[in-house]
Design a protein around this nucleic acid. Structure first.
Length: 353
DNA sequence: ACAATTTGACCACG
DNA sequence: CGTGGTCAAATTGT
């Protein structure tokens, strides 16, 4: 992909920065119990900004879509949802990839928490990858029919990087998060393939569990960058600072995350996970929410978001994204209904915010 | 006893 | 047919 068009890239960054600022304003507005009209205006502006950014990205077809899916910018225009994917097989399930970098100094890279409860249902060696991929689904799949799943895999290049591929939004209500702790729910395959899996799943596991208790000392890094090799876009904290990356050391189990949240503009409790499906899973209930592309991170995860198939447009659909703003793939984009769910600002229920 | 994880088998897709 | 994703029995943990 050639994202070498400096001018365009610069413009994109500007748009994104503007979006950030607008989001901040909106947050402030919301926090000050502002008027609806003011909110609507800001939201419109934000949407417009993202549209522009997406359009810019879209202008490079290679950048956005690798499988012929409609570009996101096509979708974000309300009245342009007429588009019907030609032969889309399925997939209304949003999907996005997130990369989380865990500071190895803490030696805690074995786990991470995005705020949801996951149950591991599989692990597989992936061709060409050093580390096996772990498959997780929502703990409440059976109970609440939540179909959210995620795949977790250590990065080949940088073992401190954890790649988390989310699929589907959470439809469950994970009330337990109200007592928010930074417990990690995901354990990563720590060993490389050539190491004994048997060993891996036993002994190290205990170590990991012990590590989990130390998770509060996790530190994360987040950045956004364009990876010209992989056609992916990563988020830079500078660009999307409001994505709220809390350091576990800051937020705390009993601590008041809100105080932190307030330091960076974010959308707080006025959104509940139930009413705002686009929110970050990571924050789940307690704490932070974010507009679409973003999510509110919960303490444990900070990271880099990345679209696996470089469809930045997916940004807009990050329903239950995670801690780190997800930029979802739109290889299977959402239909309008989904989009409204994810980015419901145009819906009546949100117009009164 | 129940819940979660592991892991080989199975299946679908390209 | 190879690979990735899921299932489910066995195992382990609480």
């Amino acid at each position: 992909m050639e994202y070498t068009k400096n001018g365009e890239q610069h413009g994109l960054i500007n748009e994104l920065i503007q979006g950030k600022e607008l989001a901040k304003q909106l947050c402030n507005t919301l926090l000050s119990s502002s008027s609806c009209s003011s909110n609507e205006f800001l939201i419109d502006k934000i949407l417009s900004t993202y549209e522009k950014a997406l359009t810019m990205l879209n202008s490079d077809s290679n950048l956005i879509s690798t499988n012929g899916s409609p570009s996101r910018s096509d979708l974000i225009h309300d009245d342009e949802f007429k588009y019907k994917p030609p032969l889309k097989k399925r997939k209304t399930m949003p999907k996005w990839t997130e990369k989380v970098k865990v500071c190895s100094e803490t030696g805690l890279e074995g786990s991470l928490d995005d705020g949801y409860c996951w149950r591991k249902y599989g692990q597989k060696d992936i061709l060409g990858a050093k580390f096996p991929r772990g498959y997780y689904r929502c703990t409440y799949r059976n109970v609440q029919g939540c179909l959210a799943t995620k795949q977790v895999q250590k990065s080949d290049q940088d073992p401190t990087m954890i790649e988390v591929n989310y699929r589907g939004r959470h439809t469950c209500t994970q009330s337990k998060h109200s007592n928010k702790s930074f417990s990690s729910k995901t354990k990563l395959p720590l060993l490389q393939k050539n190491q004994s899996h048997k060993f891996q799943t036993n002994q190290p596991q205990k170590q990991e569990k012990m590590k989990q208790t130390q998770e509060e000392s996790f530190t994360f890094e987040a950045k956004l960058e364009l990876d010209t090799n992989t056609n992916t876009i990563t988020k830079d904290d500078d660009i999307f600072p409001w994505f709220c990356y809390l350091s576990p050391s800051i937020g705390s189990e009993n601590g008041d995350n809100h105080s932190i949240l307030l330091s960076e503009p974010m959308f707080l409790e006025s959104f509940s996970p139930d009413t705002a499906p686009f929110m970050s899973p990571s924050t789940s209930e307690s704490d932070l929410f974010c507009l679409s592309p973003c999510q509110f991170g919960s303490s444990n995860s900070n990271g880099i978001v990345q679209t696996s198939e470089s469809d930045i447009t997916d940004i807009l659909s990050a329903p239950n994204s995670v801690t780190n703003s997800p930029i979802m793939d739109f290889d299977m984009f959402l239909d309008k209904e989904d989009f409204d769910t994810v980015f419901p600002f145009n819906t009546p229920e949100y117009s009164s915010l």
